[in-house]
Design a protein around this nucleic acid. Structure first.
Lengths: 342, 342
DNA sequence: GTCCTCCAGCCACTTCAGCTCCATCGCGAC
DNA sequence: GTCGCGATGGAGCTGAAGTGGCTGGAGGAC
């Protein structure tokens, strides 16, 4: 038996459509069909009535559905429980953070803290790509700190009475394109004329929200030809000349300096964001308190306004222990989904 | 995450030895080592302390162990629950039976019953190979009927007050070998001289018990060169000339007649067994009661003494729905283990 | 009636995770 | 010292499971 069969089953029992669930689970319809059959044959009974449209769940399926959920839930909580135990005893600080920040700001940030505290053990939560997802992680007490972008136009669903924050710096997202032979952007945003090829964030990331608002206020002709919630992915596409995109400055400082990438819109189109570190207001573990104190010392030394700095050299991941090292597969399409924990 | 990782973990936490668990789980030591590492990396912590021998389970491992068991248990019970539901509504009769009987006696038996009752839906429980396992299945009410061999020398752990039975027939297990050019057995049991090559049942099957008793009473020189709890497996080895074995007569009637196989010991070495159908004494589902009544009618017509009859033609499995159709893999070595439900 | 969607089922083909079977290495235990 | 055990690496293989494409049947929608 495979746990993914159960996930398939739960998904299918919700959508009641093989095609839709197949899309949701990032497999073809025929593969999903086969997997559901495998589950059914393992159980020795059928879970869905396919004889009509839309398909219906059988009585046995109705019995089994809560069980399947229970199993998946139990697997999830068991892992969290073991981790909690480990993090507590090993004094590991758990961060929720956005993908881009984990690549740009975090490494330098943690280095500066370690200069004060000595070596610090850290770990990231699973949920990378979604802005709200990370907020939820802090809300539910599954991490010690939330490192995130923030801007007045994007609601951040944290009770100010329960959570406090420090402003660590700021970031700009710049609309960029590769430069043509003449040094001008190949793809450029213009108020009129041809729509520009847009490489865009999905819907759940921070800059996706910022952009949605921006275009609501200042419409401009564009057609979205690619979506990826991770700015690194967008950067790669921009570098390949596939269109323009808003990319955090710290990710493309090098390319801007060398002239490979150039601004693709007037400066007024740039987006800004604060970089904030959130924590629960209530007293926390000794290690977390120590960390927070070190953050305060650093920010009091004038760091709050320092922009996020790009990592020197090539973009290789040198952060904390990857939490999904057990997952070998990473499909591009899957990147738009919440990180799977199975 | 894979459920087999949890099974590995539970096994290893019991044996505290990679090599032993690897053998138990039918993989190489290096494969098991990798799988445990995969589980650990999925969890993000280590479960065993490998720095000393024997290895020790870590604190986190101690936390996670009951959870792992819980998950596996939940998976198992969820399946049983769904099946129960299905069997009840679809009026499926559940049998526990020995492997050989499912191939020899059962098909004809069910055909005779169906001549009276019309089509009957049946299903086998998972536990095939172990004699006691099948008994336990009936004891725990997980099946309607137990079809089994029985003999006064082999204890059958069923409370006579709670379970009743009917004698359906009898079976002989005959010591056989392939015939040489002279028509005499290539491998033959002799009270003195060279030990004969013995192909033997494991330890948990019915005829294994009978044989153990037999050899305890009448020692004869032999060396066991192959073990398989399934008599069909032994038959194949006998046909390949690998040695002698006790095989149920009904499985080899054809070969005995044609002379391919011949008796490999004096007739006094033959083993007998009754074929019995057990059920709970308490009233049961209507379908089961109907079935039982049909059995009684049949046995009253003089069938009880009919020996198990081999299926005509080649030995192909034509019984009820295979319960482990979801399991694609079947390793020979695994055949000696209780059927996996995962 | 036609058109469309949805699902089952089949096929050929490809991919790759996971296994085995080596070999080697380091390290405690004895 | 030797022995046993576990980790690790590479080569090679296999089978499971995916994709992509197709057909066919069953229903809705119009």
């Amino acid at each position: 038996m495979e746990l993914k069969w159960l996930e398939d089953f739960v998904s299918l029992s919700t959508t009641l459509s093989f095609s839709r669930s197949a899309r949701e689970r990032n497999v073809t319809q025929s593969a999903l069909s086969r997997r559901i059959r495998q589950l059914e044959s393992w159980l020795g009974l059928s879970l869905f009535d396919r004889s009509s449209y839309p398909i219906g769940i059988t009585d046995e399926g109705k019995i089994f559905l809560p069980r399947a959920r229970e199993i998946l839930k139990l697997v999830q909580t068991s892992r969290q429980e073991a981790r909690q135990q480990h993090d507590d005893t090993a004094e590991v600080l758990v961060f929720a953070t956005l993908n881009t920040l984990s690549l740009t700001y975090f490494p330098g940030f943690i280095r500066r803290i370690e200069e004060r505290l000595g070596s610090v053990k850290t770990r990231f939560c699973d949920q990378y790509s979604s802005y709200d997802g990370n907020v939820a992680v802090l809300n539910q007490g599954e991490c010690d700190f939330l490192l995130t972008y923030a801007h007045e136009t994007v609601p951040l669903l944290l009770d100010p009475a329960r959570f406090i924050y420090r402003r660590l710096g700021s970031e700009r997202a710049i609309p960029v394109s590769i430069a043509g032979a003449d040094g001008r952007p190949v793809h450029a945003l213009r108020p009129t004329g041809e729509p520009v090829r847009m490489l865009s964030y999905g819907s759940c990331s921070f800059f996706a929200r910022r952009l949605a608002k921006l275009f609501a206020d200042r419409p401009a002709p564009h057609v979205t030809v690619y979506e990826n919630p991770m700015s690194v992915g967008l950067k790669a596409m921009v570098l390949a000349g596939r269109g323009m995109a808003w990319i955090p400055e710290s990710l493309i400082a090098e390319e801007l300096r060398s002239g490979v990438l150039v601004s693709a819109a007037e400066p007024s189109w740039e987006l800004t964001a604060e970089i904030r570190l959130y924590r629960a207001a209530a007293p926390s573990r000794p290690g977390a308190e120590l960390f927070w104190a070190a953050v305060d010392e650093n920010t009091s030394l004038g760091l709050p306004d320092a922009p996020a700095r790009p990592m020197p050299g090539r973009l290789s991941y040198a952060g904390p222990v990857a939490t999904n090292a057990g997952d070998r597969k990473l499909r591009l399409a899957a990147a738009s989904m919440p990180a799977s924990w199975s």
